[in-house]
Structures are given as structure tokens and as C-alpha cells.
Design a protein around this nucleic acid. Structure first.
Length: 112
DNA sequence: TTTTTGACTTATA
DNA sequence: ATATAAGCCAAAA
């Protein structure tokens, strides 16, 4: 699979995060069928220019914002999240995470 | 060409 | 809670 295809899958996975919920980089990668490739997700977002993509719903695995505290991106992301009703305290998201289906929790993401 | 750099993760101590 | 270590890999240096 080429990198462009991977990028499409990842963007689709990010778009699938419901408004008001969040997901981790690794989680996005897994749901895109690319386990272990959290870094690719991060890289894509760093290059992303699509305003439609809800990049602000993507967090680190510990629920913290991936930008350095106080940076521009940090401020914008927390603001965007709060605008959707997500609870953000000191760079940490309290609110709900995008819950995978029961099947996904047990069996992992669908492969077909 | 090789090395470093990142909006990262999981495991282990 | 902190701190390494190994995995990840495309792009930039």
C-alpha cells in the first residue's frame, strides 16, 4: 500500500470521530487498519491543510494534547474542543473518548 | 548516502 | 508519578 492510500484511510478514521468525542493517535491508526503507526497519523496532521478534518479531536494516548503547553496549537486545540463541549483541564481531556463498538473492543478493528 | 527529527505508543522498572 | 527502551517510518537535514 502506498502512502497516499494510508493517508486516505487515516483521514477517514479521523473524520469518523463523532463531534464532542476524542481519540488517540494510536487509536486512529488502529481504526484505519494501520496498527502501530501512530507517528504516521501525527505526521499527516502536521502536514494537513484540510479545514474539514477534525484534527482537534486527536490526542495522545494519555488523553493530553500533543502540543507543548502554551503553544499556539495547544491553545487552539483546547479552544476547539471546549467549543464542542469537551472538558479540557490543564491540557488533559476529561470528557468522553470515542467508544469503539463491543466487537472492536474484543476483536480489534474490522479487517475486511 | 546516512542521520536526525517528530502533533506517538507500549512495556518495563 | 518519572524514566528509559524499543517500535514505528516519511521527510528533512
Amino acid at each position: 500500500m502506498d502512502s497516499e492510500t494510508a493517508a486516505k484511510l487515516i483521514r477517514a478514521a479521523i473524520r469518523a470521530i463523532p463531534k464532542g468525542e476524542v481519540a488517540g493517535y494510536g487509536e486512529v491508526a488502529r481504526r484505519a487498519g494501520l496498527p502501530g503507526r501512530a507517528r504516521l497519523v501525527a505526521r499527516l496532521l502536521s502536514e494537513n491543510d484540510d479545514a474539514k478534518l477534525p484534527w482537534h479531536r486527536v490526542l495522545r494516548s494519555d488523553g493530553r494534547i500533543a502540543f507543548p503547553e502554551g503553544s499556539k496549537g495547544y491553545r487552539e486545540q483546547s479552544q476547539r474542543l471546549r467549543a464542542e463541549g469537551v472538558r479540557v483541564e490543564n491540557g488533559r481531556v476529561r470528557g468522553q473518548r470515542a467508544a469503539p463498538s463491543v466487537d472492536e473492543q474484543i476483536w480489534g478493528p474490522a479487517q475486511d
